[in-house]
Design a protein around this nucleic acid. Structure first.
Lengths: 172, 172
DNA sequence: ACATATTAGTTACATTTGTAACTATTATCA
DNA sequence: TGATAATAGTTACAAATGTAACTAATATGT
């Protein structure tokens, strides 16, 4: 592999900025790599994409959520959720109930036994991947990382709000 | 906000799995939030999308890289890079030279002064966003996070290879 | 109670992004 | 040296994802 690439002569910011050290880039790289790994599992073994998997996961824990409640919990776009839910309905992995008083709302739940069975199958793989990842970390490091991620998430959300990044929902 | 959502009765893995605690999900959430924030800067202030920004950034540091060398460094798809480079060429932010001995290779470099000027303008914003993010962390925590990210990236890459996730390049 | 606004969810459309096939050039080796 | 393979990069196509407009149902204020 030809290493004829040389760093630019340092003249101003242009030369000293190193993408590989840039936190947003590194996070993106890590997140993409991890996502590809688990997407692989869901996709080829169970024909689910990531939005579908996420919907299954939250419904597994919180049966009866409506689509917009799923949106809140998964921080996914409502269109993405709508599509994922429709696919899951077609596959009979999820079913849609009637809300007692509000006909706009359609509570969702995992079907039994089909959807539940799939979920019980898939979760060990998800946890297994996570465990394999975390095997490189000590328990303390993991706890620490967990906190750091939470704080960074809060900070970036605050920054984005200040900057006016709009994601869902009007705001005029 | 109606909190009529209740956790499922714990019966098997389905109920105890919590998406919000799942590392791949948390990383994805963090990375997306951060990316949106900086994409905002590049997009509305300088009309660059993230691939374009990355190409500018690596060329700023390593003038003369070819497109495929840019691929390696940024871990982006070659099509993505090709498109980004073409846009940058049209905008006269980057220029394409001739390789001395191999006519397949097209060394790229930031144009002067136009491309260089834009880069010098944009880098402080990027570093500013990063600094704002890191303001929540102590210097030690940042150093630690840096190492954890690197280790997790290595691990997930190893896991993916073992699983056979192919990204670019044939392998049959 | 009725016009207006809001919420839940879907559909149509545009944009982005990746996959596979393709051209052009150089490398390999029999 | 000539057939075959590999590399650099682009183009054509398909899949995913987001944006805006839309329908239906409920809430709000006068």
């Amino acid at each position: 592999m030809g290493r004829d690439e040389k760093p630019a002569k340092q003249s101003g910011a242009g030369g000293s900025f190193v993408l590989e050290d840039f936190l947003p880039y590194r996070l993106s790289l890590l997140s993409n790599t991890v996502s590809q790994g688990i997407a692989q599992i869901y996709q080829q073994d169970h024909q689910l994409n990531i939005p579908e998997w996420r919907v299954m996961a939250v419904l597994g824990r919180y049966p009866g959520l409506t689509a917009s409640q799923v949106c809140e919990r998964t921080v996914m776009d409502k269109v993405t959720v709508s599509r994922a839910v429709n696919t899951l309905l077609e596959k009979l992995l999820v079913e849609r109930l009637m809300h007692a008083s509000d006909r706009r709302k359609r509570p969702l739940q995992i079907t039994y036994p089909k959807g539940r069975k799939l979920l019980e199958e898939i979760i060990p793989f998800a946890l297994g991947y996570q465990a394999a990842l975390l095997r490189t970390l000590t328990k303390d490091e993991w706890r620490l990382l967990d906190g750091l991620i939470a704080r960074l998430l809060n900070t970036s959300r605050a920054l984005n709000v200040r900057q006016g990044v709009r994601k869902n929902g009007r705001e005029d």
